[in-house]
Amino acid sequence: MAQSNVLVTGASGFIGSHLCPALERAGHRVRAMTRHPESYTGAGEPCPGDVGDPASLRMPLAGVDAAYYLVHSLDSAEFEEVDARAARAFGAAAAEAGVRRIVYLGGLGAEDQHLSPHLCSRRAVESLLGAAGVPVTVLRAAVVIGHGGISWEITRQLVDHLPAMVAPRWVSTRSQPIALADVVRYLVAVLSAPESAGQVYEIGGPEVLRYIDMLQRAAWIQHRRRLPVLPVPLLTPRLSSAWLALVTDVNLVTARTLVDSMTTEVIVRQNPIQRLVPGPTIGYDDAVRQALAARRAALGGDSGTGGDSGAGYGAAPVQDGPAGEDAGGRLPRSG
């Protein structure tokens, strides 16, 4: 596709708000799907639509060559059922509209691992989006480092708020974080690669790190003292998620879903995106610096910890989380 008519779901969210202008810069015509087009101020032509309402999908998908699917219901206790229903409806509507490709941002995790319900749901969505016959290009990611994303905000807030950190089991889990800029670069690039249709690519930054490594390095970059770690080997997932909800702005339902996923190692193992889109990726430290700079810019240059990082959670599907963050599940407060 040289120039395409492209629909971006979750256009006002974490990934979508950066993807829309990048697609426009690449020469594509962008339709930004949102439940609130009257208040949308980002790139692309705003268009009303809700993946939870199949009838509302006909207009945004009409005349579209490719659609980016960047939504999921992380904050819902029934997220597996909600996500499955929405993906099935979107895939069917895309097929009916003659869409030639769906691009989906999913989550890393080896097939032979015990995947969390969150990651299992991501895999189910991959299949359901293409069930009606539209080829799906899947990019699987771990933690996305960027201002406004849940996983990065949790890291930043833990560094900001804690004089010491208790050590639940997940702090030793290995992950392969990726900079927001690299995720957007890959999402744009696959649109111009016809051979990516129907393929799954794993994406990640240049380093494999434990969650505690990410916390310690983020603290060092912000010139904070190294976080003392207090091992608590019997800290259960339920207690760990309650603790996470207590010391950050993430709600309890989302915290439990995230903790379940944080016990799964998420690193690039097969079919890396570099085979299709070569080039170096941004290291973790530089990704953190970019996220902090974006936050300062969003807060008008304020380098303090107060401020608002974006929209809060709603009842409809939202977007974000570790092991494949996407468009708009930002934390309601940041600091």
Rank of each mutant, 00 (worst) to 15 (best):
R140T: 07
R140M: 07
R140E: 08
A141L: 10
V143F: 15
V144C: 07
I145A: 07
H147D: 13
H147L: 10
I150D: 08
S151D: 06
E153Q: 10
I154K: 01
R156M: 05
D160H: 15
H161I: 12
H161D: 13
L162R: 10
L162F: 08
A164T: 09
A164G: 11
M165W: 13
M165L: 15
M165N: 12
A167D: 05
P168N: 05
R169P: 10
W170M: 03
V171I: 14
T173Y: 03
T173E: 05
R174W: 14
R174A: 14
S175C: 15
P177C: 02
I178M: 11
V183D: 06
V183E: 03
V184W: 02
R185A: 09
V188K: 04
A189R: 10
L191W: 06
L191F: 06
S192N: 13
P194A: 00
P194I: 00
E195Q: 15
S196N: 07
A197S: 12
G198V: 08
Y201A: 07
I203T: 10
I203W: 06
G205N: 00
P206T: 00
V208D: 09
V208Y: 09
R210M: 13
Y211D: 08
D213N: 06
L215V: 09
A218G: 06
R224D: 03
R224A: 06
L227P: 11
P228G: 01
V229C: 07
V229T: 10
V229M: 10
V229F: 08
P231M: 00
V232P: 07
P233Q: 04
L235S: 04
T236G: 01
T236I: 00
P237I: 09
A242Q: 14
A242F: 11
W243P: 07
W243V: 07
L244D: 02
L244V: 00
L246H: 15
N251D: 13
N251E: 10
V253F: 07
T254C: 02
V259E: 03
V259A: 02
V259M: 02
V259T: 00
V259Y: 01
V259P: 05
M262D: 09
T263K: 14
T263Q: 15
T264K: 12
T264E: 14
E265S: 12
V266H: 15
V268F: 05
R269P: 08
Q270H: 15
N271H: 14
I273F: 05
Q274H: 15
L276P: 01
L276Y: 01
L276M: 07
L276C: 00
P278D: 01
P278W: 00
